[in-house]
């Protein structure tokens, strides 16, 4: 009986992890390109320092800072669910996984490919999470490079969900959940993902170029 319970726990926390990761992705993309950051008014007038009312659009009924905060905090919640998901699957023992299979892909006895995708996703997620917690010690470009691997992590997590959960995927609700996640991320990517064109970013790029030119001369 206990084994059955663990099996249910594992499946349920797996789905919740995916939904949370999707939410974290969507929230992350909602901040993309410094969305809504107040920027130089390029006219000649010198306006008085800005009050918060000049801030850009809020999303999900949250302030921009709120979106960022939810992104950070929800990612930790997602990690907790993922730990439970993995631990229960290991302890359950039904699919005969060992600890190595959690991190090293494609070695599992059971469904090696799809479990393997899950393992790669776990590795990337750990990299994204740990690097974020150590953010103050890591140069920003490095942190950002690691962070962007989230875009590889998430599809792997989806594939892992869809194809490991063979039995559950037969049910309509599961199909709907996975489909909704995919739609949410694709929509957010199309709507919000963009190159950073904030005047600060443009000026910085120009400054970098000038600096390089100065070194060449």
């Amino acid at each position: 009986m206990d084994a059955q319970v663990l099996w249910y726990v594992s499946r349920a926390t797996g789905v919740v992890s995916l939904v949370l990761l999707t939410a974290v992705m969507v929230l992350g993309m909602a901040t993309s390109g410094r969305a809504g950051s107040p920027a130089a008014a390029t006219s000649g007038v010198a306006p008085a320092p800005a009050a918060p009312s000049r801030f850009g659009p809020s999303r999900f009924g949250l302030s921009r800072a709120g979106v960022h905060r939810l992104h950070r905090e929800m990612s930790l919640v997602a990690l907790v669910f993922l730990v439970v998901h993995i631990a229960s699957a290991l302890v359950d023992g039904y699919v005969g996984l060992n600890l190595l299979d959690v991190f090293v892909p494609f070695g599992a006895d059971y469904s090696p490919l799809w479990i393997g995708f899950g393992a790669v996703a776990v590795d990337l997620l750990l990299a994204v999470g740990v690097s974020s917690l150590l953010r103050s010690r890591i140069p920003r470009p490095v942190w950002r490079g690691i962070h962007l691997t989230a875009y590889a992590m998430w599809p792997l997590a989806v594939l892992h969900t869809a194809f490991t959960a063979g039995g559950d995927m037969a049910s309509l609700w599961m199909q709907l959940v996975v489909a909704a996640n995919v739609v949410a991320v694709v929509a957010a990517a199309l709507r919000w993902r963009r190159r950073d064109q904030h005047p600060d970013a443009l000026a910085r790029r120009a400054g970098d170029l000038r600096h390089l030119a100065g070194n060449v001369r």
Partner: peptide, 15 residues
């Protein structure tokens, strides 16, 4: 001649 690293310098001086 701003080194282009700080906002108030890279926007303020041209302004």
């Amino acid at each position: 001649e701003s080194a282009g690293r700080c906002g108030p310098c890279m926007f303020g001086l041209p302004a």
